[in-house]
Simulated assay, not measured.
Amino acid sequence: MGQSADLLAVLIDADNVSASKIGAVLTEVARFGTASVKRIYGDWTNTQLSTWKQTANEHVIQPVQQFANTVGKNATDSALIIDAMDLLYTRRFSGFCIVSSDSDFTRLATRIREEGVTVHGFGERKTPAAFRNACDTFTYLDVLEVPKDEPAAAAPARKSASELRQDTKLVAGLRSCITTASGEEGWANLSNVGSLMRKQQPDFDSRNWGYAKLSDLVKVIGLFVLEPRPAGGLQIRSKSK
């Protein structure tokens, strides 16, 4: 059976993610495709997961029970990994969404990508770089908009032009990607630049600096020229020094 163009498996580590964020996560997931499988893993006899029970029901997420059989060992992670591999071998999915801040899923993400399947990671800022970089894209939970009826964590503060220009990793990354994606006249398709940035830095997201769109971010930086493309969309080039 071939992969669907947009069929996704969403696997959530209940021990590692707040229930208040899942609505925003699923909204973000919808940008990538259809979440045909949604499972959440944890020890549901544990009172610490009580807030998840109603949330999982509201969002039609299948709870998977995993008892903590051994102290110091995370059985939940093992259950999620086994299920992920079973789903991978069905060849039905074009992408997996792993919702966790745990580095234990680094090898899982790498293995899925070895099969030519996309991995979208979601987690907190504390997520180790190894897991973030093992994903095709990685989105921090604090940049996602939480529904109005749910408590929201503080979103990243919007950075000023001077602060953005001092972010050498950001500016150098944009310049490099513009050079790679540009034609003879130095113009590059902005969407292509954004795609290249995410390939090099899976956690790249304009919302990390407080801007909803990449175009808003580059405008404020002030080191680039942004214009409409004749064929639609926007094009970008570095300003002449």
Rank of each mutant, 00 (worst) to 15 (best):
M1P: 12
S4K: 14
L7R: 14
V10D: 04
V10Y: 08
A14E: 00
V17G: 04
K21R: 15
I22K: 15
L26C: 04
L26H: 12
V29I: 05
R31C: 03
R31P: 09
R31Y: 10
A35K: 14
A35T: 00
K38V: 01
W44I: 02
T45C: 05
N46P: 09
Q48T: 05
Q48S: 13
W52T: 02
K53Y: 06
Q54L: 06
Q54V: 01
T55N: 09
H59D: 02
V60Q: 15
V60P: 10
Q62V: 00
V64S: 05
F67P: 14
G72D: 03
K73C: 04
N74F: 06
A75P: 06
T76I: 00
I81L: 06
I82F: 12
I82D: 02
L87S: 08
L88G: 07
Y89F: 14
Y89S: 01
S94L: 02
F96Y: 06
I98D: 01
F105K: 11
F105L: 04
I112V: 14
R113N: 03
E114A: 13
G116P: 10
V117L: 03
T118Y: 08
G123E: 00
K126S: 05
P128Y: 13
N133W: 08
A134I: 02
C135P: 12
F138W: 09
F138M: 04
T139S: 10
E145K: 14
D149W: 08
P156A: 03
K159T: 03
D167Q: 08
G173Y: 11
S182C: 03
W187V: 01
N189C: 12
M197Q: 08
K199I: 02
Q201E: 04
P202R: 15
S206P: 15
D216P: 10
V218G: 03
K219V: 00
I221C: 03
G222P: 11
P228H: 08
P228M: 02
L234M: 05
Q235F: 11
S240C: 14
